[in-house]
Design a protein around this nucleic acid. Structure first.
Lengths: 212, 212
DNA sequence: CACTGACTGGAGCGATCACTACAGGGACGT
DNA sequence: ACGTCCCTGTAGTGATCGCTCCAGTCAGTG
């Protein structure tokens, strides 16, 4: 529980952030207990706000969960490095990739809620939480496309024409490898050195580009 | 619901497989709905057996879930290729790895319950289902060790002495990559060609061994 | 035929689920 | 001072949760 339930009414400055406190508590619980394990009772206990406040801000549990995914994504994307390429940047692909990835993997430890919740929604195949699940998938696709575009921007026009799908293939490898690293982190934080991970991914990409 | 609840008592041959029917139903539900979503009510509906039968075979929900993990693992491991090396096998490491992996990835589509449930237990960090979770982690470790031993058996004594951890590092890469492929499969079956995956993993391993 | 042991069917326990109704209380504009 | 609006606190809804109890029903045994 973040804070004891006060008997006196909450002051004004607290009220303004009540919605955020509910979202934060729900995100933590969802990342620990999954969708069905996120009960309103648990949210009220951790947020210190009553159930009536939860239902004041959110229509029902489904909408709360959808907002949790959206909110935790915003925090996650804010911590992510930009997959944008400065046209003046003349560094080789491998060097730029290493720079972005080593910043990216560090966010796995700091803001894991979004990925944890998202992965749970992927694994659970019920249709109930369709809204939250669809939002996560759309976000994931957007990230893949951004990474693919970043790769393609490094290719010459000849390679782009001959292997138009190469950028997306590489993006898929990066995403899948990040998923694997993230899962390993959930088991044991020290199980795998993130720098080793970056080296492995850069090596794959270099090989694939050289082969094409 | 697999079968209508009969008003007349069940014949003997059905009784003998009641435990398996409960396990099968629970595994399906757990793989769709997660740990908290696997309710006794859902299990009784899908298995066609009453709650009293569930509690006749299993002490409580935790033990049921632990048995589900153990049972689904047995089915999964039966479909897995053997990570054993015939000492007379003189094929290069890459060729043997490719043969094993291409059989291994094909099991992802056929018997996904074990991995789905296991990944959910990894993500959910509650202490409640400690037994099922611990069993999955132990199994995972055992598989990693087997793969690591397979790699090490391909190394010369000089390399084994100089880089004793190399086999385990490579095993971790294989496991993490498989996790990533599995997750991609959950989103879209046709998203990624398993043969591409095998090629990528073999390439990483070849690179890493060559560097060492 | 009686007896036993392995299940099943059904009723029901207290706790908790998602959710609602409603009476306020504090910060505001007037 | 007064009313309005936003939000909180409390009490409670019916449904479902995990789980228990126990009579009843079968196959097998003697």
């Amino acid at each position: 529980m973040m804070r004891a339930m006060p008997t006196t009414p909450r002051p004004a400055e607290d009220r303004e952030i009540s919605r955020d406190r509910i979202l934060k508590a729900a995100a933590e619980i969802a990342s620990e207990c999954g969708y069905e394990g996120t009960t309103i009772s648990r949210v009220t206990k951790r947020s210190g706000l009553p159930a009536s406040s939860v239902y004041w801000f959110f229509r029902d549990k489904d909408h709360l969960m959808a907002e949790v995914v959206r909110h935790s994504f915003e925090q996650w994307i804010a911590a992510q490095p930009r997959w944008e390429r400065d046209p003046r940047d003349e560094r080789p692909l491998a060097e730029g990739l290493r720079a972005i990835l080593s910043r990216s993997v560090r966010t796995l430890r700091d803001a894991p809620d979004f990925l944890r919740i998202g992965h749970m929604l992927l694994l659970e195949s019920r249709e109930v939480e369709a809204e939250a699940r669809r939002y996560f998938l759309a976000t994931r696709d957007a990230v893949s496309n951004t990474i693919a575009a970043w790769f393609t921007s490094h290719f010459g026009t000849e390679l782009q024409a001959r292997r138009p799908e190469l950028g997306m293939d590489l993006a898929r490898i990066v995403v899948a490898a990040t998923d694997g690293l993230f899962l390993a982190h959930q088991i044991n934080d020290d199980d795998w050195d993130p720098d080793d991970f970056v080296t492995v991914v850069v090596t794959i990409v270099e090989q694939a580009v050289a082969a094409a």
